[in-house]
């Protein structure tokens, strides 16, 4: 059995009017069934309002399903007596780096979770040290969180969750408020947790370049899972991703545009290195096949230069 098993999970937000009566119901998560194996790196993509954060909060028992069920490490989150076990086995890191650090000193914040769990003092110190080392923030253990950068604060938050020795960590848009450097450092820390500590990671984001290392990607829209697969499988559906208004990396867009112009490139190219390699292969093949004579004329063998319909590739320009 997987570490997270949801079946037909739905969640309704009920909007109350001023008298406290139900005014309207919004279905935020709609019939989601998914299964996550221990040790996997999972990414959930979708734009704001797609239901991805609502789904995330179910994994930590901050919300319980309106319909259907979700089991975390074999425990039903809807059962009152399981709540604390669930929260311990599935930690959560939130979006705003300022609003989740409780301690006034980095190490005290990391110790907050274990303190709540009733871990003996000596062990708290061991856990704090190892967690801070795992995210590369041990040197800052005596610092005030207010003086750290956004990326550093998020790594402290990750350490704070790690110190609770969870089986899985849910990162709910941890990079949305960070600059590119901070974003990279947080993603690096999350990958290290998965690679080294074998913690199951569930990364929720709207940046596609952050999910290329995931084992499995789920794309959400209007509360439903609309696509799933390996990053390569998901990224090969460029048109569909663009229709969902997701941020397809420029390399993938470019590879797709080249493909549409007739270049025999593989589907779902994710990085610049990959594209470079594939193009080199093409060049070598062409050199070998056509020799020196055939390859001189531009566009002579079916590759159309600049004749694509203009709306096929726009690079995100309005």
């Amino acid at each position: 059995m997987g570490i997270i098993e949801s079946s037909h999970l739905s969640y309704d937000y009920v909007k109350l009017n001023e008298e406290g009566n139900a005014e309207g119901v919004t279905r935020a998560v709609d019939d989601v069934s998914l299964s996550v194996e221990p040790g996997q790196f999972i990414a959930i993509l979708g734009h704001n309002g797609s239901g991805k954060s609502t789904l995330a909060r179910h994994i930590n028992a901050l919300l319980v399903p309106t319909e259907g069920s979700i089991f975390v490490d074999g425990k039903d989150t809807a059962k009152e007596e399981n709540v604390w076990d669930v929260r311990q086995s599935a930690g959560m890191v939130f979006q705003n780096p300022d609003n989740q650090i409780i301690g006034q000193v980095v190490e005290e914040d990391v110790g907050f979770g274990p303190e709540n769990m009733g871990v003996p003092t000596k062990e708290i110190w061991e856990r704090v040290e190892e967690s801070l080392r795992a995210v590369g923030m041990y040197a800052y253990r005596k610092h005030s969180p207010n003086k750290l950068s956004g990326g550093q604060k998020q790594r402290v938050s990750i350490a704070g969750v790690l110190a609770m020795h969870p089986k899985c960590i849910v990162l709910d848009e941890p990079t949305a408020m960070l600059d590119p450097d901070g974003r990279k450092s947080v993603i690096r820390a999350a990958r290290a947790l998965n690679d080294v500590e074998r913690v199951t990671v569930i990364l929720i984001t709207h940046y596609m370049e952050e999910v290329i290392y995931a084992d499995r990607v789920f794309v959400m829209d209007k509360g439903r899972i609309v696509m799933q697969g390996t990053p390569r499988e998901v990224f090969s559906h460029v048109e569909q991703l663009k229709a969902l208004r997701l941020d397809v990396p420029q390399v993938t867009l470019l590879a797709y545009a080249l493909q549409k112009s007739g270049l025999p490139l593989p589907d779902g190219i994710l990085t610049a290195e990959e594209l470079e390699l594939e193009l080199k292969k093409l060049r070598d093949r062409k050199n070998a096949a056509g020799g020196a004579a055939g390859a001189k004329e531009a566009g002579a063998d079916g590759w159309n230069v600049g004749e694509e319909e203009p709306d096929a590739v726009d690079g995100g320009t309005a």
Binding site: F94, Q100, E115, V161
Partner: peptide, 24 residues
């Protein structure tokens, strides 16, 4: 902020002083 913080504390198993140990 208060709202976010409450959620973050709850997610880290905070439930008042009962059964809490101390790091320091």
């Amino acid at each position: 902020r208060a709202n976010d913080l409450a959620l973050a504390m709850e997610a880290r198993c905070y439930r008042g002083g009962e059964g809490r140990t101390k790091m320091k």
